[in-house]
Amino acid sequence: MRELRYREAVREAIAEEMEADESVFLMGEEVGHYQGAYKVSEGLLARFGEKRVIDTPIAEAGFAGIGIGAAMTGLRPVIEFMTWNFSFVAFDQIISNAAKIRQMSGGTIDVPIVFRGPNGAAKQVASQHSHSVDPFYTNIPGIFVVMPATPRDAKGLLKTAIRCNDPVVFLEGETLYNVKGEVPDEGEEELIPFGKGRIGREGTDCTIVAFGRPYYETMQAAEKLAEDGIECEVVDPRTLRPLDLDLLVESVKKTHRCVVVHEHWPYGGPGAEIVDQIQRHAFDWLDAPIERVGSLDVPMPYASNLENFVLPTVERITDAVRKVTYSEKK
């Protein structure tokens, strides 16, 4: 297998699907001539032309709406938000329109559309540009929510998303774009299904559920704990809606302990949902209350010392695992 950066994996998925299907196009701010604000779409304009790689004005509600109308009438738009923070001005389009049209029309109109872009905090971009939006979108029936942590998952899941006949919210990560990882060789097509998680690391003492950016802090925490003889199983659900509950429950039944790590704020959200599902489906197997590690419950400050304090850290994850395994720091 090759190694690719996350951004290259996303780009390959878009390019391959555009190559395979004339109805797929990419639309968003600076996706064409600028080559993408985060260089995800670099080279796509030269390859596919202005008809299919479309620069828009700064008008998220407008181009999200255009995408929805195009999807309703047979195209397969990939709509890029420069960051998910800007999706809030298009919130109504995603919630009231994309997620509702199919049922509202008695099942007669499909909306095959992907909304994608970087999610979560970057580095010192302060409170208006540091939202992890997964809690907002996972609450809504009618859309899928995908949050891949690795290049391989990003590629395989984005290909599935583009071929999906329903709206997909696809949450990448600005700080993940440079991450390198193994991706199947060219010509070896991999489509990763929605609702199937992945074991990032096997272990017997504690399950850690992690997705998106803090997956990497979680993996580091697991390695650190292993030095003290605590073997954690890291499970990445990869899609938050639908959720691979079977995989989570299976792991907890093996380890009897669980910590859930997420970038979003502590109140509600997929982190709380996962805890709730596990306690209801694996209650008798649990030997300790489930712990959660998320961003601290404050808007993101600018200063780097404080930003690092707010985001989930390796230390907070190891502390949580020690708490549920009743083990002292050595």
Partner: peptide, 8 residues
Amino acid sequence: AVAAGAAF
């Protein structure tokens, strides 16, 4: 904008 999308 959705209608504009159908025209698109």
